[in-house]
């Protein structure tokens, strides 16, 4: 299976209003995998005493990343809709840290795609900040 034409990552993110508003950065996409960055921003803080990001902000970028991974899967045609998404918060992100999320669409049936994802704050000596798993409705054609 040949990979798709490279997506203009910057344009793709700007076409999605909320992703543009949060300044999400699509770093890599293709073959069911996606990497999206969320640069630190004071507006996304959940606890101003510590400068730690709100869980909802991490959810937003994880949700986007999972959707992007599904859409880039070679078997998936057309639009996707999230059925469910579960996020586990393993630890607090380091104060003022940028977040990078990666998602992998690891299985696709005719109508459902399965995804897992993780979010990291750059400290590779520690586990991810959050892990997630989700399912999406799709219409898929087997390659």
């Amino acid at each position: 299976m040949e990979s798709r034409a490279p997506v203009n990552a910057e344009q793709f993110m700007k076409a999605l209003p909320h992703c543009g508003a949060m300044n999400m950065q699509l770093q890599q996409i293709g073959k069911g995998q996606a990497t999206i960055g969320l640069p630190y921003d004071d507006r996304f803080v959940g606890d101003p005493d510590t400068g730690v990001l709100h869980g909802g902000a991490i959810s937003a970028v994880v949700d986007t990343c999972c959707g992007a991974a599904v859409m880039s899967h070679p078997s998936v045609k057309g639009a996707t809709a999230t059925i469910d998404l579960r996020i586990e918060y393993l630890r607090s992100a380091a104060p003022r840290a940028d977040i990078v999320t990666t998602a992998e669409c690891y299985h696709v049936t005719r109508s459902v795609a399965f995804v897992r994802a993780s979010a990291h704050d750059g400290d590779t000596s520690k586990p991810p900040v959050a892990t997630a798993s989700g399912t999406f409705m799709v219409s898929a054609v087997k390659p």
Binding site: L16, P17, H18, M22, S59, A60, L85
Partner: peptide, 20 residues
């Protein structure tokens, strides 16, 4: 307007719903 995820539908971004 900046709560929209997919401008073609248009629909609220799933992340906004999750955050709410």
């Amino acid at each position: 307007e900046d709560h929209i995820g997919n401008p073609l539908l248009p629909a609220l971004h799933g992340g906004v719903t999750a955050a709410l």
